Amino acid sequence: MSDDVTARSGPTVEFLARLGAEVRRRRKDAALTVQQLADAAGVSRRMLTQIELGQANPSLVTVDKLAGALATDFVSLTRDTRPGALAVNAPGTGAGVWSSVAGSSGVLQAATGRQPAAELWEWTLMPGDRYQADPDPAGSEELFLVVDGALTLDVDGLAPVTVETGGSARLASDRRYAYANTGPVPTRFVRVVHLGA
C-alpha cells in the first residue's frame, strides 16, 4: 500500500457527524464550555470546535482523550450503549469508524453496555491494503475470525502471521500492530475488542 493511501484513510463522514453531535451533547450536559473541555482533554479549542461540527478528522487517540474528559469511553461516544436486556442494530447502522481510498472499512457493529466495554467490529481489507494501529491500554486483547480471504497480523516484535478463511486468532493489542491483506481477494473478518482497565 502506498503512503498516499495511508494519508487519506480515516473515519467516515457519518462517523464524524455522529461523534461531533455526541461530544457537543455531552459537553453541554456537563455544563462545560468548549475551552473547558478542550483543556481537560488536552486538545486545542479549534480542534474541538471542528470535531463538534463534524469537520475534523481526529485520531482515535484524540477521541479517547475526549471520552476520558467527558467521563465516558470511545464506544459510548459512537454507539448507543443505553442499558437494557436487548439492543438490536438494523443492517447498515454500524459506526463506520475507518475507511481507506482502496475501499477497505472498519465498522463498529455493537458493544456491551458494561465497562470496560467489549466491541464487535466488522472489517473488510481490500488487496494490498493495511491498517496500522496504535497500542491499546495494558491488558487489552482482540479476537479475530476470518470470514473470507486471508488476514495478516503484523505485531511489533513478532514475525507476521497469516490467518486463512475460517481461522481465528487472539492478539494482545497493548503494542503496535497492523492488519494487512497481502492476497489477491478482499479479506473480511470479525473482530472482538476487549480493552484493559
Rank of each mutant, 00 (worst) to 15 (best):
D64G: 08
R170S: 08
L66W: 06
G139N: 06
L77A: 03
L32Y: 11
S59M: 09
D80E: 15
V107W: 09
G183F: 03
A71S: 09
P186Q: 13
N181F: 05
S100K: 08
A102R: 07
E141S: 08
K28C: 03
R79N: 00
R45F: 02
V43W: 02
R114G: 00
Y177T: 01
A71V: 01
A85L: 11
T152M: 05
D129G: 09
D136H: 15
V97G: 01
P83L: 07
L60W: 10
G84P: 10
R176G: 03
G20D: 05
I51Q: 00
L195Q: 02
T93Q: 08
V75D: 04
G139D: 12
S9I: 15
F189W: 10
D156V: 01
A71Q: 12
I51G: 04
R130S: 12
L158W: 00
A71W: 07
K28R: 15
Y179A: 09
V155Y: 07
D73C: 11
P135M: 05
L125E: 07
Y179M: 06
S100L: 14
A38P: 02
W123K: 04
D73W: 09
S105N: 00
L48N: 07
T152Q: 05
L16M: 12
A30Y: 04
R24W: 01
A138W: 15
R175M: 00
T112L: 05
S76G: 14
T124H: 11
A133F: 15
T162Q: 02
A40M: 10
S99P: 03
A31K: 01
T165A: 05
V61L: 15
S76F: 11
V34S: 08
S104T: 03
T93H: 00
R130Y: 02
E164Y: 01
L153R: 06
W123L: 13
L70W: 02
D80R: 14
A85D: 14
R191Q: 14
P58Y: 00
A40V: 13
G42P: 00
E164R: 09
A159N: 08
D29E: 14
L145Y: 13
R26Q: 07
L66K: 04
T152L: 12
L158E: 08
S100G: 15
A71K: 15
T165D: 07
P135R: 04
V23N: 02
S168T: 02
A150I: 04
Y131G: 02
G183P: 06
R8E: 13
V146K: 05
T72D: 13
A85G: 09
L60F: 14
I51D: 06
L19W: 07
A67R: 03
A180D: 05
A41T: 01
N181L: 13
V146Y: 12
V34G: 02
A111L: 09
A31V: 12
D129R: 03
E141Y: 00
F15P: 06
L195R: 13
V190W: 01
V97K: 02
R82F: 00
L37G: 01
P116C: 03
S105G: 01
Q115L: 11
E119W: 04
T124W: 11
V163R: 12
V63T: 03
L86M: 08
R130G: 01
L53M: 11
V163T: 08
G113A: 07
G92T: 09
A117C: 11
W98N: 04
E164A: 15
P184W: 04
L143E: 10
V192C: 10
V34Y: 02
R25K: 14
F15L: 14
G149I: 10
G84Q: 12
R170K: 03
G10V: 00
V97Q: 06
